[in-house]
C-alpha cells in the first residue's frame, strides 16, 4: 500500500511490543504479595494494622479506577466504602453472619448506589462533579447519623459477630484469619481490576480521561462507560468497607466521612494515580507512617504526612511510582 513511502519500519519496534504486551504479568508484580505474605509471618503482632492496610489498599485501588483511569475526580468515595461497611454491619446484627455472602451483598449494594448516584453526578464535570460527589457522601453520613434505629447513630454498630470463614476459620484475637481473608479479597479484586484496565473497556476509560469530546466523536457511549466504571469502583469500595466491618466487628460514622474520602485520595496521590499499583504503595506508606508518627509525635503527625504530600506534589508528580519510573529511565539511559 505504501511501497513508495521511503524508509519503512519492517516490524513493530520493541517499544510497540511493550505497549501491546502490557497485559502480561511481570515478575515485579509479585512484590506486593510477597511483602504481604512475609508480613504475616514476620510481624504477627501487627496483623490488625496489616488488615487495615490491605483494606485501605483495596479502597484506594477502587478509587484509582475512576480517578486515575476514567478521570472522574471524586471527593466522596467514602459514600460507597461506608455503605458497604454499614450493610455488612446491619446484616451481621440481623443474623446474616456468614462473611463471604455478606461481602458480596455489601458490594452489590454499594455498586447499586454507584449507579443511582452516578446517573446524577456524572452529568457534571470538573468542580461541579467534585462538589456533587462530596454532597452525596455528606448526605449519607447525615442520614446514618439520623437513622439511629438502623445504624446506631453516633454510637455506631457494636456487638457484631461474624461466623467462621468458610465455616471453619474463626476470626481470632490475633487477627490471623482477618489478615488472610483481607489478603485473599484484595488479591481477587486486584486480579479483576488488572483485567479491566488492560481490556478494551479499560483503554477506553483512559481515552475518556484524556478527551471525552474525542471519545464521543469516535462513537463511544461516553456517559454509559463512565457510569459502568463508577459502579464497578463503587462496588469494590463497598467490599473494602464491608471487610473493615467484618474484621473489626464495628462500624462508626467515620466510614462515611469527608475525612476518609480525603485520606484515600491522599494515599493514591502519594503512590501515583492511574498506575494500578499506586494504591499498593500509598496506602501502606500512609498507614505505617500514621502508626509510627502517631507514636512519636501524637499531636503533629498529620503535619508530617502533609509535608510528605507537598514534597510529592512539587518534586514527584505521578507520586512515588512516577518518581521510580523516572529514576529507572535515567538509569537505563546511563547504561545504554
Amino acid at each position: 500500500m505504501s511501497a513508495e513511502a521511503a524508509p519503512l519500519t519492517a516490524a513493530p519496534s520493541a517499544a510497540v511490543a511493550a505497549i501491546l504486551g502490557r497485559h502480561r504479568l511481570r515478575a515485579v508484580e509479585a512484590l506486593p504479595w510477597l511483602c504481604a505474605g512475609l508480613g504475616f509471618f514476620a510481624l504477627p503482632d501487627y496483623l490488625a494494622l496489616g488488615s487495615q492496610i490491605l483494606i485501605m489498599t483495596l479502597f484506594a485501588m477502587s478509587l484509582d479506577l475512576v480517578l486515575g483511569y476514567a478521570g472522574i475526580v471524586t471527593l466522596g468515595h467514602a459514600a460507597f466504602f461506608g455503605t458497604g461497611a454499614y450493610v455488612a454491619g446491619i446484616l451481621a446484627l440481623h443474623g446474616w453472619s456468614e462473611p463471604i455472602s455478606a461481602l458480596a451483598i455489601a458490594g452489590a449494594a454499594a455498586g447499586l448506589l454507584g449507579v443511582a448516584t452516578g446517573l446524577i453526578v456524572l452529568r457534571a464535570r470538573g468542580l461541579a462533579l467534585l462538589m456533587l460527589t462530596l454532597v452525596v457522601a455528606e448526605m449519607l453520613q447525615e442520614a446514618a447519623n439520623k437513622l439511629g434505629w438502623l445504624t446506631g447513630g453516633t454510637d455506631g454498630l457494636q456487638g457484631i459477630t461474624i461466623a467462621p470463614l468458610l465455616g471453619r476459620f474463626d476470626f481470632d484475637l490475633f487477627g490471623r484469619t482477618a489478615y488472610l481473608y483481607s489478603l485473599a479479597v484484595l488479591l481477587l479484586a486486584w486480579w479483576l481490576v488488572r483485567r479491566i484496565v488492560h481490556s478494551p473497556f479499560g483503554h477506553s476509560l483512559t481515552g475518556l480521561r484524556e478527551s471525552a469530546i474525542r471519545m464521543r466523536a469516535i462513537g463511544a457511549p461516553v456517559f454509559r462507560r463512565r457510569l459502568r466504571a463508577y459502579a464497578v469502583s463503587a462496588a469494590l469500595a463497598g467490599i473494602a468497607g464491608a471487610l473493615l466491618t467484618q474484621t473489626t466487628q464495628f462500624v462508626g460514622l467515620q466510614v462515611l466521612s469527608f475525612e476518609l474520602s480525603g485520606t484515600v485520595l491522599v494515599m493514591l496521590v502519594l503512590g501515583g494515580i492511574g498506575r494500578l499499583y499506586g494504591a499498593f504503595i500509598g496506602a501502606p506508606l500512609y498507614m505505617i507512617a500514621q502508626d509510627q508518627l502517631a507514636k512519636q509525635d501524637p499531636v503533629n503527625w498529620l503535619f508530617w504526612i502533609g509535608l510528605l504530600l507537598v514534597l510529592i506534589v512539587f518534586f514527584a508528580r505521578g507520586g512515588i511510582l512516577g518518581l521510580v519510573d523516572r529514576i529507572l529511565m535515567a538509569m537505563g539511559r546511563r547504561c545504554a
Binding site: H23, H198, P200, F201, H203
Partner: peptide, 12 residues
C-alpha cells in the same frame, strides 16, 4: 469491542 471488560485488548 470497546465495551469488553474482561479480555485483554491485545488479545483481539
Amino acid at each position: 469491542i470497546a465495551g469488553r471488560m474482561f479480555r485483554a485488548a491485545a488479545a483481539d
